[in-house]
Amino acid sequence: MANYDIGIDLGTTSIIIYVVGKGIVSKEPSVVAVNKKTDSVLAIGQKAYEMAGKTPAHIVVERPLQNGVISDIDMTEEIVKYFIKKVSSSYVVKPKVAICVPSAVTNVEARAAVNAALSAGARKTFLVEEPIAAALGSGVDISLPRGRMVVDIGGGTADIAVISLNDVVDSTSVKCAGTQFDDRIIQYVRLNHKVLIGEKTAERLKKEIGSVKKVMEDTEMEIKGRSLETGLPVKITVTSDEFIPTLNEFAMTLVVAVKGVLEKTPPELVGDILEDGILLTGGGSLIKGLPELISGETGVQCRVSENPIDCVAIGTGMALDLIADGYSLSYSSDY
């Protein structure tokens, strides 16, 4: 396998690049800064993220992927081109590219992802479902006739799938993921403290003290924002416990989806899942109390992947390796 073949975890909040033979080589926010006066791209990735909330009116920092799907094809192509150029070790032979997609992806969305990669210079493009990649990247042997349940909670969507014999038995995708938790935090602070905070502050709050279930002592955190009453900058102190009801209510959307997939899964595979547990992956799986909440509601033990953020990109690279070695993967679509 040439060392410039690439696996891409093209997420709503971040893009992670895996190069076969090298591992994870790049991890940056999937954002673009655009000058609306000239329609030119000013920055991509981390540099663009640092501009967020600090630009003049004619410069917009936007995410071309919304809720796990491509909403702006042109800007997505710019992102993919940028990262392929950044990590490729050869411009003579175009790389093969594997891209992760949600399990419930539509044909239109799949074609948009393929076109972005081909336009960016890929020789051939493979689409791999995110739960499959997450399982592979977490060290799960999906070739066995045994039911495995994966819940991949990304930035825009949560993908829930039962896997057996290298394929997805049943799956669903729900918009209950990282950015939506951030939105709930922003709404809560606005309604209950009359303060407007930004996305970065909400994300930091979620990571540091956010919880969907009481699993730790009440913790305080000081945040900054703009008072909706005076319009002036303010500092307020919030606690972890006060966010539990609103985050728990939203997290139940995910729990209901997990239950729905379990209810449609064949009995023999459900028995395997009960024995092996549910695997949680993605950055959203790190929200405090989430494994305990899902376990308590379903009666099935949950565990978080050892490398929840990178496992999807790693699994994508592993899929490329398997395809190169001649394995027939029924879950990958090539173009």
Results as ranks from 00 to 15, higher is better:
V32C: 07
V92K: 15
L274F: 13
V195A: 07
S14E: 13
V34N: 02
A2N: 15
G315L: 07
A104N: 11
K36T: 15
K259S: 06
L10D: 06
K86I: 00
G283P: 04
A251I: 06
E297R: 07
Y91V: 11
R123H: 12
D321W: 08
P145A: 08
V234N: 00
A52W: 11
K81G: 02
T219G: 05
A113M: 03
A202T: 04
G155Q: 05
I73Q: 15
D152C: 06
S240L: 09
D170N: 15
F126W: 11
S14P: 00
P29S: 09
H58V: 01
D39V: 00
P266E: 06
T201L: 03
L65E: 07
L196A: 14
M149W: 12
A43C: 02
E306D: 15
S227T: 03
K235V: 09
L144W: 02
P233W: 06
I186G: 00
T237Y: 03
D310H: 15
L42S: 01
Y49R: 13
I153Y: 12
V80D: 05
P245L: 10
L262S: 06
L228N: 08
V31R: 05
L290I: 14
D74F: 15
Q66C: 06
G198M: 01
A52N: 10
L254M: 10
A48Q: 08
T55Q: 05
E222G: 04
V97L: 01
K47W: 00
Y91Q: 05
P267M: 10
I15A: 11
K22S: 13
G283S: 03
I16A: 08
Y331R: 11
G271E: 15
N192F: 14
V151E: 10
P233K: 03
T316E: 04
A177W: 07
S71C: 11
V114K: 13
G231E: 11
T239V: 03
D276C: 04
A110Q: 09
G225C: 01
I197S: 03
M51A: 08
G231N: 11
E263L: 13
V19C: 14
M318I: 14
V61E: 12
I294D: 04
L196E: 15
S119V: 01
A313C: 08
I70M: 07
G45P: 05
G315S: 06
G317L: 06
N166E: 14
